[in-house]
Write a protein that binds this DNA or RNA. Structure first.
Lengths: 122, 122
DNA sequence: TAGAACGATTCTAAATCCGAAGCATCGAGT
DNA sequence: ACTCGATGCTTCGGATTTAGAATCGTTCTA
């Protein structure tokens, strides 16, 4: 499964539009989380794994490879992983999601039950 | 596989922090894409499927159920799917990603080859 | 009234992910 | 020198998720 890159067609999109490549990259499990966890500081393999709720090491390695490949990460001489400038900007692009998730949380608290399948205007 | 919701522990996170729930929700394949494709207009099942590069209908249905459940979508009386206000804000939270993906694309064009495993400061 | 488009479900196979185990290396401590 | 714990991975079998095709019943249109 190749690392998605803009320009080439990616899984689920023949166009190769950058956004589609990005959605593919970040649609893989733990991708978003890994970028998130590296937001303020380099981490080695195992520490990173721990921060990611002890995700399986095999998948972690795979994601790291992909993210290295996509130039969101680079590896320090001591083998720790860190965000590249590009990776940092990706993290920043993800930040609004934090705010949103709070709204989401609040809104679900106000209506934890069944969905109104119909009107829902506004 | 339950729909992730803030407050309850989700896959890969015992805390139930809203962000982690969001990362779980959007970490599922096609989730991001579906929200994206509904950004400016309601779509029925099949039209939506087509826009998503003919993703498999079984998975589409699954994702739709989850997104309905999470209140990002609702269904019109004619059964088309649309973003709720919350879903719309989610889409907006995702927009910076578009800009980022362009930068990404450009940067990869300048260095399509092997990664410099070491220094990479700045 | 025949055909097309639709929403949705079911089934099987393939891809992906998980989790545990193992291995080699390194530095700290004795 | 020698154990010990931590680290960076790798491998492998089994579980979960996704893909893909086929199908069903309904509605809409010609």
């Amino acid at each position: 499964m190749p690392t998605p890159r803009p320009g080439k067609p990616v899984r689920g999109s023949a166009t190769g539009r950058p956004l589609m490549a990005a959605l593919d990259l970040f649609g893989r499990r733990w991708s978003l989380r890994i970028v998130w966890e590296l937001r303020d500081g380099e981490l080695g393999f195992r520490p990173l794994q721990q921060r990611c709720d002890n995700m399986s090491s095999s998948v972690l390695r795979q994601r790291l490879t992909e993210l290295l490949d996509a130039r969101l990460l680079y590896q320090l001489p001591d083998s720790r992983y860190a965000l590249t400038p590009l990776g940092h900007r990706a993290y920043q692009a993800l930040r609004p999601l934090t705010r949103w998730s709070q709204e989401w949380s609040e809104e679900l608290l106000n209506s934890p039950a069944e969905p109104p399948r119909t009107p829902m205007p506004t």
